[in-house]
Write a protein that binds this DNA or RNA. Structure first.
Length: 269
DNA sequence: GCTAAATGTTGAT
DNA sequence: TCAACCTTTAGCT
């Protein structure tokens, strides 16, 4: 259940456990048996994340994983646990300290081995990733500023902005005070720049904490430590609850096959 | 304990 | 526009 921040964390987890060391790859479930055989015994040479796509290099062969809605990784040290459920891919290795390391992948939408030109094609069809140094927010704005499509839909398009999902969309638009229905062409350049900067800030915070927390500290309880779970968002999954800024009930509506959350006052047209 | 929904995308209709 | 993917969790009873 990832947006871009968790995929970056997965890349970091894989690198930390397996980089430079020979890895045993298998598919206990069987569905990725042929792919796992191609990787088995090779060392991990690189890890990368672009939007919600994870890329793990095994020499010239690259493992590509997209988790979809309910795929997930489980990582651990020592001996791997007994397989339960559908494990598409299991990686095991000596671990950085020789204590053993393992990773299980379940329920992914995409789990495949790519060649270099296919990796290049993947990068080519993905848009600006707020977590990547090579991101080009101007290219994203070139699309946005020419489009009649609502900004709330454009932000979900991975070929425009890569890594943003339903939570970051709702929260970033609330923080910007923008109605998700506003056409892209009606978003000003400075407004886009501010929105982009905020996405960079929010996703980086998500990489650090492993959670999506978008509320400002002063909006949360004055206790120390992380935000309580129910304090983490301004509008996402807060249907009917009072807006944290103006107390207007948060509304939810179906939008581009997802649920869109917003405050009708703070994000007025 | 059961059901519905979920941080997503693809491919069929 | 909708089903499929196939797991976890929130919210009921």
């Amino acid at each position: 259940m990832p947006e871009g921040h968790s995929v970056r964390r997965h890349a970091d987890e894989v690198r930390r456990r397996f980089a430079g060391l020979p890895v045993a790859a298998s598919s206990p479930q069987g569905r990725f048996a042929a792919g796992a055989a191609l990787l088995d015994g090779r060392p991990v040479s690189s890890t990368d994340a672009h939007g919600k796509h994870l890329l793990v290099g095994f020499g010239e062969r690259v493992l590509h994983v997209h988790l979809g809605l309910y795929g997930g990784w489980t990582f651990g040290e020592g001996d791997p646990p007994e397989v339960r459920g559908q494990v598409r891919l299991r990686l095991t290795g000596p671990g950085p300290g020789g204590e053993g390391a393992w990773a299980d992948l379940r329920a992914a939408t995409a789990c495949e081995v790519l060649a270099a030109h296919e990796v290049a094609a993947l990068h080519g069809r993905l848009g600006a990733d707020p977590l990547r140094a090579d991101a080009d927010p101007d290219a994203a704005y070139a699309v946005v500023s020419r489009s009649r499509t609502p900004l709330g839909a454009l932000l979900m398009r991975q070929d425009v902005v890569a890594g943003v999902g339903n939570v970051y969309r709702a929260e970033a638009l609330f923080r910007a005070g923008i109605d998700p229905h506003r056409p892209g062409r009606d978003v000003g350049a400075s407004q886009w720049a501010a929105l982009w900067d905020d996405l960079v800030l929010l996703l980086r915070a998500g990489v650090r904490s492993g959670r999506i927390v978008t509320t400002e500290r002063e909006d949360r309880d004055r206790r120390t430590g992380p935000a309580r779970r129910e304090d983490a968002h301004y509008v996402y999954k807060r249907t009917g609850l009072p807006c944290r800024r103006c107390a207007t009930p948060v509304v939810a509506e179906p939008f581009v096959a997802r649920t869109l959350y917003r405050c009708p006052t703070c994000q007025a047209a």
